[in-house]
Computed example of a mutant assay.
Amino acid sequence: MNYKRLETFVWVATLGNFRKAAERLHTTQPAISARIAGLEEELGVKLFTREGGSSPIVLTSKGKELLPYIEKILYQTEQLRKRAAISTAYSGVLRLGVSETIVNTWLPDFLSRLHKEMPNLDVEMTVDVTANITIGIKDRSLDLGLLMGPISEPNIINRELCTFPLSWVASPKLDLPDRLLYLEELTKWPIITYAKATKPYVEISQKFRELEGPPAHFFASTSLAACRSLAIDAVGIATLPNIMISKELETGNLRKLRSVWTPNDLKFTASYSDEPFNPLAEVATNVACSAAQEYDKTQHSNGAT
């Protein structure tokens, strides 16, 4: 039985649309139609029906009955490939969503390992905030997200990757006192932080709203590199991952501030939808976990905190 036909059937059933299935499988809509027609002829049953107008394509009763069996066939096929160590069998495109913190740390090592593991694989990478990557994972426009997780959905697989502590930092030009600082003392300058649609921004802005006195003003950005540059240029006070400011602390362009409160550590996961089974995302997740663990070991051996 033709593997591509079975794979196409599962994706059309999942997405409810021939065009979306064609985009996902990097082929044309007529090719999708031909595969489904061929499978229906081979099985001797009607698998899909359209209810009319712009309604999505839906499974027939027989299609619903056969779906779990076909999903199992695809899953077992991929398990066979893995046990046979056929790395060259993995080809196609992996649509990857990445948080910028990962981009600035162990992403290059991950991509190098991924190419070694699956040399026939192409990667389409999107660097974005976690909220947008999460949407992409849920609507399956992305195969895998390396993000601030986990994603709380029953069909989403979440694997822990790494944790990055945050610190308050500022340029020595601001001449802040070298002692424990209250948050009220920081509001004299703009608070440079993550974009609005992120966990750190929500946590930080909520904490500052609880303070008495004048409100804090926020300079939010999707670019951590931009936040770091603004802090170096003494535009304001920033909260950044320790891993991104080690060089600036050594050179004296930035200094850590001691404060009565610091945001929670950033916890990252590799997250992907397992319905339908996605072998590329599963293998890539294993590679990401290895790269993150190796990076963490290297940082600890170098004395990074």
Rank of each mutant, 00 (worst) to 15 (best):
I102A: 00
V103E: 15
N104G: 12
T105S: 03
T105M: 02
W106V: 01
F110N: 01
S112Q: 14
H115E: 12
H115Y: 12
E117G: 10
N120F: 12
N120I: 05
V123T: 06
V123Q: 03
M125I: 12
T126A: 09
N132P: 02
I133H: 04
I133L: 13
I133A: 01
I133C: 03
D139Y: 02
D139A: 06
R140I: 03
S141Y: 09
S141I: 06
G145F: 08
G145W: 03
G149D: 05
I151G: 01
S152Q: 14
E153Q: 15
P154E: 10
R159K: 12
R159H: 11
R159M: 05
L161F: 01
L161K: 00
L161R: 03
C162N: 13
C162L: 12
T163A: 12
T163N: 08
P165H: 10
L166T: 01
L166P: 03
L166E: 09
S167R: 13
W168L: 06
A170K: 11
L174K: 01
D175M: 14
D175G: 10
L176K: 00
L181A: 02
Y182S: 14
Y182N: 13
E184V: 14
E185D: 06
T187F: 02
Y194A: 14
Y194R: 14
Y194C: 10
A197E: 13
Y201H: 15
E203N: 05
E203A: 04
I204L: 08
S205W: 10
Q206K: 15
Q206L: 12
K207H: 05
R209Q: 13
